[in-house]
Amino acid sequence: MKHTVLPGFRLTMGFTLFYLCLIVLLPLLTLPARSATMTWEAFWQTITDPRVVASYRLSIGASLAAASINAVFGLIVAWVLVRYTFPGRRIVDSLVDLPFALPTAVAGITLTAIYAPNGWMGRLLEPYGLKVAFTRLGITIALVFIGLPFVVRTLQPVIEDLDPEVEEAATSLGATRLGVLTRIIVPYLFPAWLTGFALSFARAVGEYGSVVFISGNMPMQTEIAPLLIITKLEQYDYPGATAIALVMLLLSFTLLLAINLLQGWTTRRLMN
């Protein structure tokens, strides 16, 4: 540690570590500790149970679909908010954070009301044979809602940082607007775009509140992994719940690591 005139390192660091261990690390460590008491066979049997595998597949598949939708529309929204002016832009900009601020249970029952067969959107879609509520499509829509701000908010500062002089230079050298877009803008935005996608995906995989109402919760069909954990807990099947949760926790940590690497990449890109 370098010498500094500022005081309080021991005190603040001590409290930070103590609080972190007490609130986060100690509780989280009970999960692997608890599953260590299971035999490997029992653990494997739990996580390869067809119902469990189906829930993982659904959670990951729907989250990938939702993150992809957010990647496409989030890019458009971020671009429009930074580059174009139109009436109400600032209000729209503030509204993008709504999914962070609105409790997930409220989002869940509201989306269900909108997409139920007698809801505003459900009524419009039903004649086309499109059922949303209580299907996988409904789950995806709920996940799009809660992941929406991530892509927009990671891209916005990067688009703002995009130096117009680079575009000017390319244009004056004869590049078309499309050429500038594909050769300069897209490669420049790519790391941040991928980060936004990963954040949106990571959030969606663990999501519970906004999904349970719209999903219908049919085992093998529309049962997400977090819901299966709750079901096992309610049946006092703690080992079963622990095993499913541990797999999800490993997935989350892998994603967190990937996101950190991606953010490092984005920062290095911006520095150069």
């Binding site: 663990g206 999501e207 977090p226 949760a245």
Partner: peptide, 22 residues
């Protein structure tokens, strides 16, 4: 700093469950 971010990465269901296990 990564450890401080952990609760963001954990599913809410797991966040509650660890206290039941504890």
């Amino acid at each position: 700093t990564t450890l401080i971010d952990l609760p963001f990465a954990v599913s809410p269901v797991i966040s509650g469950m660890v206290f039941v296990l504890l």
